[in-house]
Design a protein around this nucleic acid. Structure first.
Lengths: 116, 116
DNA sequence: ACTACATTCAACCAATTAGTTGAATGAAAT
DNA sequence: ATTTCATTCAACTAATTGGTTGAATGTAGT
């Protein structure tokens, strides 16, 4: 399958999953290796149920898969959807690459106006 | 500013903006050049107000800026937030790059199971 | 001044989301 | 068999989202 035949809602689910800072932090944690719900919950002031729901969102996006290790259900990172998202964004690369320093000045603007 | 000091909710707004297929299509249209609300609305069975709202979301994410040309308010693509998103995703590159063909097999799996 | 047209505002609606609490399930350990 | 512990389910809530309709605003043309 070519990327542009990829079901559009799968890309939507991926971006939607990445839109939440808690979920991005969970992915960052999983980049260091498998983790249980409990371990994933530890940095947050959230219930296990909330973390469990976030995991379900990540799983529906294909970003995480779960295993079974005794009573634990360890989650592992599955990066393929990130590759797909990266390819999608890559189509726009020319729009920031040729106006050199566009990212820098964007970040500077953010920092100053502190609102888009 | 370093990317990792970028306000987290700005990245969230960017990913959230990209999570909607209508908005992604609007960005694709804008990649071909400036466009008015009317022109952006044309491919969709949506009201102008709906398109206007989508534009507001894109603008809040910093992905679009607006001008004034007679009675029109042309929108232009502003790709810097995409650069930021690309850098963020790039941190995970090793996770699909070293397992060669991960993207391909992900797409194949999508195509077969047609559900994550 | 009036009219026409592009866009936005305001109010509303249905569906989704991120969170909670409390009960249920499943596997391990005693 | 019971208990313990990790995780999930169900039901509920408040806030957000994507859409609508109809009125308001802003600019241009006659």
């Amino acid at each position: 399958m070519k990327l542009d035949e990829m079901p559009t809602d799968q890309l939507s689910r991926t971006f939607a999953a990445l839109a939440d800072p808690t979920r991005r932090a969970m992915l960052a944690r999983l980049a260091a290796g498998e983790a249980t719900v409990g371990q994933l919950a530890e940095p947050f002031a959230l219930t296990f149920a909330a973390i469990s729901k976030h995991l379900a969102v990540l799983e529906a996006a294909g970003l995480v898969s779960r295993g079974r290790d005794a009573k634990y259900r360890p989650a592992r990172l599955d990066a393929a959807p990130l590759a797909a998202a990266s390819v999608w964004i890559g189509d726009y690369e020319q729009f920031w690459k040729d106006s050199l320093g566009a990212l820098d000045s964007y970040l500077t603007r953010l920092q100053q106006g502190e609102r888009s």
